[in-house]
Write a protein that binds this DNA or RNA. Sequence first.
DNA 1: GCTTAAGTTCTCTAAATGTTCTCATTACAC
DNA 2: GTGTAATGAGAACATTTAGAGAACTTAAGC
Lengths: 213, 213
Amino acid sequence: MNLTQTEVKIHDFIRAFINQQGHSPTLKEIGDGVAIKSKGTVHRYVNALKNKGVLQHNTRQWRGLSLAENPPEPSLNKHSDSMGSRLPFVGRIAAGQPIEAINDITEIDINELLVGKNSNRYMLQIKGDSMIDLGILDGDMVVIERRDSAKNGDIVVALIDEQNATLKRFHLESDGQVLLIPANADLTAQQYAAERVRIQGILVGQMRTYQIS
Amino acid sequence: MNLTQTEVKIHDFIRAFINQQGHSPTLKEIGDGVAIKSKGTVHRYVNALKNKGVLQHNTRQWRGLSLAENPPEPSLNKHSDSMGSRLPFVGRIAAGQPIEAINDITEIDINELLVGKNSNRYMLQIKGDSMIDLGILDGDMVVIERRDSAKNGDIVVALIDEQNATLKRFHLESDGQVLLIPANADLTAQQYAAERVRIQGILVGQMRTYQIS
DNA sequence: GCTTAAGTTCTCTAAATGTTCTCATTACAC
DNA sequence: GTGTAATGAGAACATTTAGAGAACTTAAGC
């Protein structure tokens, strides 16, 4: 059951789309995402993927695609069963001072902070330095919550002209234009007509791991 | 069970409304929130969501909507509730490009990355800007693994003169002196005799959350 | 009981989407 | 060369989703 190159590409696109948007893409959206202009052609690919068992298709319905779920991923290490999401919170550390102990919070639940209780969040990995001044570095993972609007100052995932995505600080000008502000002294803010910008989500968390021996 | 675009939008709106207000919105409020003028149309969507099992509806009652406890859709942007430490990994985002879908990793287990299997980790909150050039900002949480030694280049929690703690990059000089290097252009590295410095742990992770309304 | 706000059930219309075709092009094995 | 598979465009048509609004029923408050 081998997938061709384009089939893999389309499958990846569909999975990413569903995870990010919460619903299936249309044939046209798939076509836009993988540079195929004919929805008939896309339809042929979707059918192939369905026949090969990697997609489920609720026919006679718009946006009826879903992933044929791989086996529900057995967690490799059994520790992750519910117990392991808390770490002791020791206190605050500042350069050259004793660690300031905390007496109210003793444990931090990482899931609660980053995953939240609603299932409308997903992760992206950052490529590039455009948010470096906010401490978001190349390679960092960020947690995004799906939203279609934002307040000034929010950091948003914005889709420009239905094509290009970017992570920037959002500011709506009084004249209705949208300003997308990077956090990098080398870059300048970009201004767009509001209708060219679609908010896809808002930054709610960031994380990074360090390799140790 | 697939939701259409507008269905997801309405579902998100209802969830946000209940989270904020503590009670269900009315049909008109939903319509105002998603730009639909006809409450008849909104009603059709609410019914669809009810039939698809993601909403519960106490009929014959005003503001009788609530979210279904266990939505039937196990794959649609949801991380198995059994252990909610996973988030879907959508891809990489770079300024001004489409989000790059990935095909190898589909989910990220946050616990696995930050908590790890060992129970010798704890968290500290950062006070000050001494590590700002490494993207560790004032207020960030960091995960530390207990260690009493470090390799050059590791970022360590070091106790100096059994008194003051600091988070710095570690470097052992050839003459046996220990250099503790901040990541802030305004600060300079400090050098200590090895016996004055006790390593308490090594930085393995960092996280930050952003407040949204 | 009465009034009002909210929910329900329709119909009408438009637009978007899915489905099924045909026709072309390219690459590759034989 | 020839056949085949993969790829892409696009037309024609069927079906679903979408939004507005009217008419009616029900719940809440007085």
